[in-house]
Simulated assay, not measured.
Amino acid sequence: MSRLDSMLRRLGAQRDGLNWAADAISDLLGDVLDLGLGNGRTYDHLREILPDRRIRVIDRALNCHPSCIPPEADFLQGEAEPMLTQLAREGAQFALAHYDLGFGVKDQDVAEAARLSPYLAAVMAPGGMVVSGQPLVGMTQLQGPDTIAPDRYLFYRA
């Protein structure tokens, strides 16, 4: 499979997974967390499918498209661990989180996701959902929508 085909498959899975998870949390209270703003495509999609929810964002740097800049109060710039720790101290409870942090090196990305999993779990509302491009630990893995190949995107219930 070409890298282009792989990217298209990943983006389709991400969109389908976020839509599926948004429907699944419709009766839960809590905000939304986007871990890894990147260029802002996912954040923009979350704004569209969950217009009544506050969306908090964590990333090392603000490098997104100008139309996708979160409100200043909702953007936490820095490393994920201290930002998640701060959110936990504030009592934040997220009904949905999207985990898309990484360095682009699979082994490092998997290790980082495992290390950050307890911090993410600490800010999830009971029954909240996590949509992730990396395997997480300490949460119940779910089977996502049928449109997504197994292990392409991962789904968890807190």
Rank of each mutant, 00 (worst) to 15 (best):
122 A>C: 13
47 R>D: 10
75 F>G: 04
74 D>N: 14
34 D>K: 00
20 W>N: 08
23 D>M: 11
149 A>T: 12
94 F>V: 03
65 H>G: 06
85 T>E: 14
69 I>D: 06
44 D>S: 12
154 L>T: 03
56 R>I: 11
34 D>H: 10
135 P>Q: 10
19 N>F: 06
11 L>I: 11
20 W>S: 03
33 L>C: 00
82 P>L: 05
53 R>I: 00
107 D>P: 02
69 I>R: 15
27 D>F: 06
130 V>W: 00
138 G>K: 02
99 Y>C: 02
101 L>R: 03
101 L>V: 07
147 T>M: 08
56 R>L: 15
152 R>Q: 13
21 A>F: 06
24 A>K: 04
60 R>K: 12
116 L>W: 00
99 Y>E: 01
38 G>K: 05
80 A>F: 07
110 V>Q: 00
138 G>I: 04
55 I>P: 06
74 D>E: 15
103 F>Q: 09
20 W>L: 07
104 G>P: 05
156 Y>R: 01
150 P>D: 14
49 I>C: 13
102 G>M: 05
102 G>K: 08
122 A>M: 12
11 L>A: 10
62 L>C: 12
119 Y>A: 03
17 G>E: 08
81 E>D: 13
86 Q>K: 10
109 D>E: 12
90 E>L: 14
30 G>L: 07
62 L>I: 08
119 Y>I: 00
78 G>S: 11
54 R>P: 01
90 E>D: 14
41 R>W: 09
84 L>G: 02
119 Y>E: 01
28 L>Y: 09
77 Q>V: 14
31 D>K: 05
86 Q>E: 10
150 P>W: 11
7 M>F: 01
63 N>A: 15
68 C>Q: 12
73 A>K: 14
126 P>M: 11
127 G>W: 03
69 I>Y: 09
63 N>S: 13
104 G>W: 01
69 I>S: 08
101 L>N: 02
44 D>G: 12
59 D>C: 07
105 V>L: 09
86 Q>V: 04
71 P>N: 12
63 N>M: 15
85 T>S: 15
40 G>S: 12
152 R>P: 04
45 H>K: 05
134 Q>Y: 02
141 Q>V: 11
64 C>D: 07
39 N>I: 08
3 R>T: 02
156 Y>T: 02
118 P>G: 06
53 R>V: 06
82 P>I: 07
125 A>M: 13
42 T>S: 15
114 A>L: 02
102 G>V: 01
20 W>C: 00
31 D>L: 02
57 V>S: 02
60 R>N: 08
46 L>R: 07
22 A>Y: 01
30 G>E: 06
100 D>L: 03
155 F>S: 00
140 T>R: 11
35 L>Q: 03
63 N>V: 15
41 R>I: 04
2 S>R: 05
23 D>E: 14
23 D>C: 08
2 S>P: 12
116 L>N: 03
63 N>G: 13
4 L>C: 05
28 L>K: 11
129 M>Y: 09
36 G>A: 05
30 G>I: 08
117 S>G: 11
25 I>D: 04
132 S>I: 05
73 A>L: 12
48 E>I: 06
144 G>N: 10
131 V>G: 04
23 D>H: 09
68 C>R: 13
158 A>Q: 07
135 P>A: 08
142 L>V: 10
